[in-house]
Amino acid sequence: MPVFHTKTIESILEPVAQQVSRLVILHEEAEDGNAMPDLAVPVRAVKAAVDNLVRVGYETVNSSDDQILKQDMPPALTRVEESSLLLLDASDLLRADPYSGPARKKLIEGSRGILQGTSALLLAFDESEVRKIVRVCKNVLEYLAITEVVDRMEDLVTFVKNLSPVLTRMTKNVDAREKELTHQVHRDMLLRSLEQVKNLTPVLISGIKIFITAKQSGQGLVEAQNNRDYTVRKMSDEIHEIIRVLQLTTYDEEEWD
């Protein structure tokens, strides 16, 4: 079961997560340990990277119109920033005493905090990206909802002209997202629903066409309407399923299990 739910987050955090757990294990196995080397240079490198992340993070928060991102990102940035101060403390303490126990604790707490804070930050950013895709999906749902007012061939032409680019955008976004996920079950669910939507699109257009013809001829109107509405419902259900799966993380499923 993957720990990180996207390949991007995994590629960024997995190596540092491994290093941090190794340090924790070593610390637990050898409480007093060897003398620590001077960590001033690597700690300064971390601090510089943290300062840059904080700057970029607040720029992102200020330029975004996503209220949830604006709310979620600052605590993660604070966590990272505070953790980097623990590392600076650890480095100072170790310079005075390379065997310092409190310094080792601060080192572990600081590196763990940076890992957790960066993870929270990446998660907040990723969720914001998912909300963008969800908005595109909801746009398609809005178009599907107006199917019932399409009762002339001219309207159908306009309907298809408007629906096609939104549908293409949704397909492209969901397809790209599917490739990003580490959880195979979620990937399969997205692919299956997307395939259904693709297959149902020509069925919908043909259904609307049959409905328009039936309305003009006055024959088989109820059946044509039922068929059209059934296809709209099926497509909407699949898009709702896509939205649901997009918002899932591996953690959700473990919690559910």
């Binding site: 991007t8 960024i12 955090l13 190596p15 540092v16 290093q19 941090v20 190794r22 340090l23 070593l26 610390h27 196995e29 050898a30 340990g33 060897n34 003398a35 620590m36 080397p37 960590l39 690597p42 700690v43 490198a45 971390v46 510089a48 990277a49 943290v50 840059n52 992340l53 970029v56 993070g57 720029e59 992102t60 990272v80 590392l87 080192l107 590196s111 940076i114 890992l115 960066t118 930050l121 990446l122 950013f125």
Partner: peptide, 29 residues
């Protein structure tokens, strides 16, 4: 994109720091 790059830098710098600290400890274990 900038966020991802900045996060990559932090992760790399932290991993390097922790690796240096671990290396000193490992000699004892």
């Amino acid at each position: 994109e900038q966020i991802l790059e900045a996060a990559k830098s932090i992760a790399a710098a932290t991993a390097a720091l922790v690796k240096t600290a671990s290396a000193a400890q490992r000699e004892l274990v």
